[in-house]
Nucleic acid binder design. Structure first.
Lengths: 240, 240
DNA sequence: CCGCATTTGTCCGTATGTATA
DNA sequence: CTATACATACGGACAAATGCG
């Protein structure tokens, strides 16, 4: 097998590594990639010379951060290092603090707007016709659903994913998607949806601005998109 | 005590909530705040009617996200909902992918620069004399240390914390601090420090720009601050 | 479709280490 | 220093899920 393990002691006077850190070291030293199989819990228990309980508790920590992915009855694998942990943490923070202060949700919206606006010049420059067409049809679907009084979370999420996909910065795309999820989740807790038609139309306006070729217009369109959302937030602050 | 628990079954046809979710519900329903004490593991074991092993594994998940904080031999408390989980996750991603591609570190630096520049107008407008003086003395300390060939991580981190503290957006401050930590950690793995004096001086230039009162100059100074960092990254890409 | 081996999920009992009062 | 409450750790047993012959 020739699996490599870090030296058990390197006598540098440090305290011994935690089980979590030793498992992380294992992944790093063996240069595993997301999806690669990990040793079974019993193997880890033997090789690290700790009980299976401890291995399992360490695995819980690691899977919460998507460093490993555990499949019941099948095995454990290196995780995809996604930001699901951040999403859970922020969502809970929103739930816990939303009725005390609105700072969190306001900060979140500001951050979404800010990051999308940052890429406006690049988006105007790079956006290809296929992506634009996909965004247009999503916007049309949103308007249709809004006319029926229905919400359109899936379309909205995908629209914003496409919008920032041109940035070339994968980290920003993942972060914005997390922020969308958290915003959507917290927003559901402050009452039934409002501004449906207005928000749906705002997405058409964003594509219009892109087609105009002016970064300034795109920035303005993005700002207008977030206005009804801020308005809804301000109103909810009074009724709570 | 009159602690409230969510109804064990709400017969809406959903699958039963996980232990993790039931503990989260407990915190929400009882409106606990960070620092408030949680029931002991034995109490939770009794009240949720599951074994202590499961409680402990759930606690590991929750503490990884800083939703609870466990103090050995003392008790468990509601966590501070910090972003330590994100820091760990991103740090590991950096370790795992840094020798394959440099996109991650590049994206991280771009994001740091972008977010700091976003607040440049506000910073120029709001920064008070006390904060400015603190930043100036930090910059001086950095130059001194650089002259001795020593690094200055603590000073650098605090400088950037102060820089964005004027934004009024706590979330951005926390995110940037996480990015600083991750960047610092990954940067250590690509070799001994370089550009010490240049980087230290760049911080003086940032305060100079703030004092000039021009947001444009501040933006330029921030960009210049990140240049040697990008240069170091590009050089390391070849030697790996 | 069935049975089997593998692997993770859950539970219990007990002993140990640690912090607080 | 002692006592108590609490989290940490261990080992074993059985249940549940998955994949495969």
């Amino acid at each position: 097998m020739a699996t490599q393990w870090p030296a058990p002691d390197d006598r540098t006077g440090r305290e011994p590594l935690s089980v979590v850190d030793r498992i992380k070291q294992y992944i790093l030293v063996n240069r595993l990639s997301p999806g690669d199989p990990m040793p079974t819990e019993n193997e880890l228990s033997d090789q690290l010379a700790v009980s299976r309980s401890r291995i399992r508790e360490a695995m819980k920590t690691l899977s919460a951060l998507d460093i490993v992915e555990v499949r019941h009855g099948y095995g454990t694998f290196v995780g995809t290092l996604s930001l699901t942990g951040l999403a859970e943490s922020l969502a809970f923070r929103g739930m816990l603090t939303s009725h005390r202060d609105k700072h969190f949700l306001a900060d979140l919206i500001d951050l979404r707007e800010l990051l999308e606006i940052d890429w406006a010049p690049l988006i105007v420059e790079r956006l290809d016709v296929d992506t634009r067409a996909a965004m247009r049809s999503l916007a049309t679907a949103m308007v249709d659903l809004a006319a029926q009084g229905r919400e359109f979370p899936a379309e909205d999420r995908q629209f914003h994913q496409l919008l920032v996909s041109m940035s070339g910065n994968a980290l920003v795309g993942q972060l914005l998607d997390v922020f969308w999820q958290v915003h959507s989740l917290v927003d559901d807790t402050i009452g039934p949806p409002t501004h449906l038609e207005e928000t749906a139309q705002a997405h058409h306006a964003i594509i219009d601005a892109i087609e105009s070729g002016s970064p300034g217009e795109l920035e303005a369109a993005i700002r207008r998109h977030y206005e009804p959302i801020r308005d809804r937030m301000r109103r909810s602050a009074g009724t709570d």
